[in-house]
Write a protein that binds this DNA or RNA. Structure first.
Length: 273
DNA sequence: CGGGCGGCCTGGAGGC
DNA sequence: TGCCTCCAGGCCGCCC
């Protein structure tokens, strides 16, 4: 479910509540995630204070004292929420961090594509999960030339390119469709046939879409919620994603759906060339 | 070697 | 109501 905006919304929703609190007990209820939960590494986090919350790509990073970072990835269906510690576990609750404040931070993930890791804070970027990640689209130096440089010598459709985390992180299926719509670029256009001006438009569109989605609390199609359980609103602002058969908000032609690399892509056949 | 596809899971929606 | 099929926001690994 969650792409960059949803993880950033989650991070911001937890930011006022977690730093300064302390993990008193780690409860692993179900180890089955994308990688089996490393129970002993997690249990060793008990007793540590929470220092800060960061985000890299679609990973939430919870920095703890003693040089450890708890890494959480929500996969498709993960939810990380704060709850009273005495609340009974919800279905598919995999991990709960019981906090000194009496609350618990719990991870629920029905489809089990998510991930929880305890890693050393130093050198995190060299961990295999992070080592090959590309540019952060919200970094100030991200722009059309970032994309153009990454595209040099590559082939294939621009939509798959935008979703390649080795190029630019955080853009998943929803925001790739929305970025292409805003930039007026057809999803099947080959990356070898995109001008510098078009790369600039694509980069600017990606940044604008991601920023607006964050401002509107993320996209809740089914089950995204922030750390307080609040849904997002950006689904109302989606121009193309999920709107096949509806009129394009710009020109009125009907939005179409096509399948690329096994994923649905939504576009306007008139605005996107 | 890079690109594309299947597979991993469960649940919800829609058709019959 | 119930059963069946299809589809879903991510990511990895295998295949060509």
């Amino acid at each position: 479910m969650p792409e960059l905006p949803e993880i950033e919304v989650l991070r911001r929703s937890l930011e006022p509540h977690l730093p300064g609190d302390r993990i008193v007990r780690v409860e692993v209820r179900n180890r089955e995630l994308r990688e089996p939960v490393a129970v002993r590494a997690l249990v060793r986090l008990a007793g540590r204070a929470i220092l800060s919350l960061r985000r890299r790509a679609k990973y939430l990073l919870i920095d703890l004292e003693g040089g450890r970072t708890l890494v959480v990835h929500l996969g498709m269906s993960g939810r990380l929420t704060l709850a009273p510690g005495a609340l009974p576990p919800e279905p598919h609750e995999h991990v709960a961090l019981h906090l000194a404040s009496g609350r618990k931070l719990r991870l629920r993930d029905p489809r089990r594509f998510g991930l929880v890791l305890a890693l050393p804070t130093a050198g995190l970027e060299r961990d295999p999960h992070f080592a090959r990640l590309g540019a952060e689209p919200l970094d100030p130096d991200f722009g059309g030339s970032t994309l153009a440089r990454a595209a040099a010598g590559r082939r294939g459709p621009v939509k798959s390119f935008l979703m390649d985390a080795g190029v630019v992180v955080g853009v998943g299926n929803i925001y790739a469709s929305e970025t292409l719509f805003r930039a007026g670029v057809h999803p099947l256009r080959s990356v070898g046939r995109i001008s510098a001006a078009r790369w600039d438009r694509l980069a600017a569109a990606a940044v604008a879409v991601l920023r607006q989605a964050i401002a509107e609390g993320g996209t809740t199609l089914n089950d995204f919620a922030d750390g307080q359980g609040r849904s997002g609103e950006f689904q109302v602002s989606l121009a193309a994603y999920g709107r096949q058969g509806e009129p394009c908000p710009r020109c009125g032609h009907l939005i179409r759906r096509l399948v690329q690399a096994g994923r649905s892509t939504f576009y306007c056949p008139h605005c996107q060339r």
